[in-house]
């Protein structure tokens, strides 16, 4: 091992360096670092070796993690973005809620109407104009970070986040404590908005998780960490 050798847990960083970078040149020329990099790439390549049984292993390891961690992975897959049908799953649930409670039908119509006019939130608790202006493009900063939610009058909570360079819209997503997505709002070009309990399905958990995804032409280009949110 030479003094220039890099730690195993940082070995992938060289892949992002330009070809003429000295660390990258070291890794390419060093038997130890180049071997470990090849080994790491082999680790990520889930090629099936004859005699192995990855499907059985998957099932048993899922059960193992569930018992060790105390939660089953199946519950969180959608929220983590590995599949994108959380919203589709949510619709039947919310429609059932509307069916049971006709008042929600009116609420849904208001949300749709609000969307048509480009108003990206719904605020039944206050008649005032509540679109909040975020900092101008000139003030953009990275990365996207969330401010602590501020309780405002009535049941409203003001959510705010820092702008992200390159983003032309932001989408706020809400999850329950198992990270099942509850609702994602229409994308907005603002960096703050007000949400209220009445925007959500009736059986709203006491604590929600929220995060903001930065979009450019509809593509995700970044996201904030997740933070918790409690309605008054």
């Amino acid at each position: 091992m030479s003094k220039d050798c890099i730690e195993v847990k940082r070995i992938s960083e060289v892949l992002e360096l330009p070809a003429d970078d000295s660390t990258r040149r070291h890794v390419e020329a060093c038997p130890r670092c180049s071997a470990i990099l090849a080994s790491y790439q082999g680790f990520l390549n889930e090629e099936i070796t004859a005699g192995s049984d990855p499907d059985e292993a998957d099932a048993r390891l899922t059960a193992f993690l569930a018992s060790e961690i105390g939660v089953l992975r199946e519950e969180v897959r959608d929220a983590a973005g590995t599949k994108d049908h959380a919203w589709k799953d949510f619709l039947p649930r919310i429609m059932k809620t509307f069916y049971l409670r006709p008042a929600w039908v009116a609420a849904l119509l208001v949300i749709i109407a609000a969307g048509v006019y480009g108003v990206l939130w719904w605020h039944p608790w206050t008649p005032d104009k509540t679109v909040l202006r975020g900092p101008s493009q000139a003030e953009v900063s990275q990365p996207l970070t969330l401010s602590t939610p501020q309780r405002i009058s009535g049941e409203g909570v003001r959510l705010e986040w820092t702008p992200m360079a390159g983003a032309d819209a932001y989408q706020v997503r809400f999850y329950d404590r198992n990270l099942n997505e509850i609702v994602r709002l229409e994308p907005t070009n603002e960096t703050a908005l007000i949400v209220g309990r009445s925007m959500f399905p009736a059986q709203l958990p006491a604590k929600l998780i929220w995060r903001v995804v930065a979009l450019e032409q509809g593509d995700e280009i970044g996201s904030s960490d997740a933070a918790s949110l409690e309605f008054p």
């Binding site: 390891l61 961690i69 105390g70 992975r73």
Partner: peptide, 18 residues
């Protein structure tokens, strides 16, 4: 915990095959 299960679950197959 749910985030942990998801995160490790993403790699359980790679770890086993490795």
């Amino acid at each position: 915990r749910a985030a942990g299960a998801e995160l490790l679950g993403r790699y359980q197959r790679a770890v086993y095959l490795w």
